[in-house]
Design a protein around this nucleic acid. Structure first.
Length: 345
DNA sequence: AAGGCGGGGGT
DNA sequence: ACCCCAGCCTT
């Protein structure tokens, strides 16, 4: 039996029941694919369900305020996905009359839809014979065909896409594409794959050459940088506080946080107070205290954030103050959400 | 071609 | 610690 036939057979026997497996509606499939970018299926499921509940159609999503979308996205990470989701919804409604493009090229022109996602939607919704190459597919192909070209090199990206196209099943592309990904996620897993009971064990090059644990090859270690965050949690006489929206290029774009002062190193109390005075960041206050002596280390893929929260009880009412109940409505990073949940006024 | 972008789970 | 996850966009 051919490679693709084995994949299809394995898939029919082993596929999981997932909420987006009962439909080929482009809006639903697109939503699921954006959510699943660099995200585990189990983590994405609740988000998919609550997005569909809040926005049953692309028109509902298009007319929603961005803050509501970001709030629902909170905790999922890579927030540009949420912003692009909104932009694409508006584009589909305003320029395509509410209907998603039905070609690979048309799909790929949408914001946040790259090569993988365009192929996934095209094949699942329209049965267009376009191979998907995600992290699972790289692993399955690299191992089964014994390909040592780095998967994140230009050559690798090109080579694996061509290989994927060569071995795909055009007639059943919808199931084949989902099948090879599911196979990679469950059977040909990154660590400890179940080679002993794999239907492809007879012909797998990596298994024969004892290279399962080294394939696929991936270059580039991302080095993390340390940053030092000092958040000012203001509280006035009515228990109101202040939030600011993150702008510019970096992390958490358009999300909210307490007023932030970033420093080059961990600050002593006196040091911090001095800087606040110099920068005129401190109103008259009743008390000023460090909330956590030991910095909270919030770890992102490429940054470690050493974070301190400072509680400032002000003498006057805060202009533009937000009540403690109200802050729950704002989209915030997990770091801030965790603090809000822990902190008792 | 390389780097930035989250958060969670596994080893 | 490090790796990986139904990747994409910018520089």
């Amino acid at each position: 039996m051919s490679f693709s036939q084995e994949i299809l057979q394995w898939y029919h026997k082993n596929k999981r029941e997932l909420p987006w497996r009962n439909t080929i509606e482009p809006y639903n499939i697109w939503l699921s694919e954006i959510i699943l970018q660099q995200t585990r299926v189990v983590q994405g499921i609740p988000y998919y369900l609550k997005f569909l509940d809040a926005f049953p159609t692309v028109r509902h999503l298009a007319k929603a305020p961005e803050e509501k979308i970001l709030k629902l996205w909170q905790g999922l990470g890579y927030y540009s996905r949420a912003r692009n989701l909104h932009a694409t919804a508006k584009m589909v409604v305003n320029e395509h009359n509410g209907t998603f493009p039905n070609t690979y090229v048309g799909l790929k022109s949408l914001k946040g839809v790259g090569d993988y996602t365009a192929s996934a939607i095209a094949s699942i919704c329209f049965n267009i014979p376009e191979p998907v190459v995600d992290g699972n597919v790289y692993r399955v192909l690299a191992r089964y065909f014994g390909v040592g070209i780095p998967i994140n090199s230009s050559e690798g990206i090109k080579h694996f896409k061509e290989l994927a196209r060569k071995v795909m099943n055009e007639e059943q592309i919808r199931d084949y594409n989902q099948g090879i990904m599911e196979f990679g996620a469950i059977q040909c897993a990154p660590k400890k794959p179940y080679c002993m009971l794999c239907p492809l064990q007879e012909s797998c090059v990596a298994l024969k050459d004892n290279k399962v644990d080294v394939l696929p090859i991936k270059l580039n270690k991302t080095k993390t940088r340390r940053r030092y965050f000092n958040y000012l949690v203001f509280l006035d006489g009515q228990k109101n506080t202040l939030l600011e929206q993150r702008k510019g290029k970096g992390i958490w774009q358009n999300l909210y946080q307490f007023p932030l002062l970033e420093s080059e190193k961990e600050l002593q109390v006196e040091e911090f107070e001095q800087i606040l005075m110099e920068e005129n960041r401190l109103p008259r206050y009743r008390s000023f205290s460090m909330y956590n002596e030991t910095p909270i280390v919030h770890k992102l893929s490429h940054q470690h954030l050493y974070t301190r929260f400072w509680i400032v009880e002000t003498k006057k009412l805060l202009p533009d103050g937000i009540s403690w109940e109200q802050i729950m409505e704002f989209p915030v990073p997990v770091l801030i959400a965790d603090f809000i949940q822990t902190f008792k006024i």
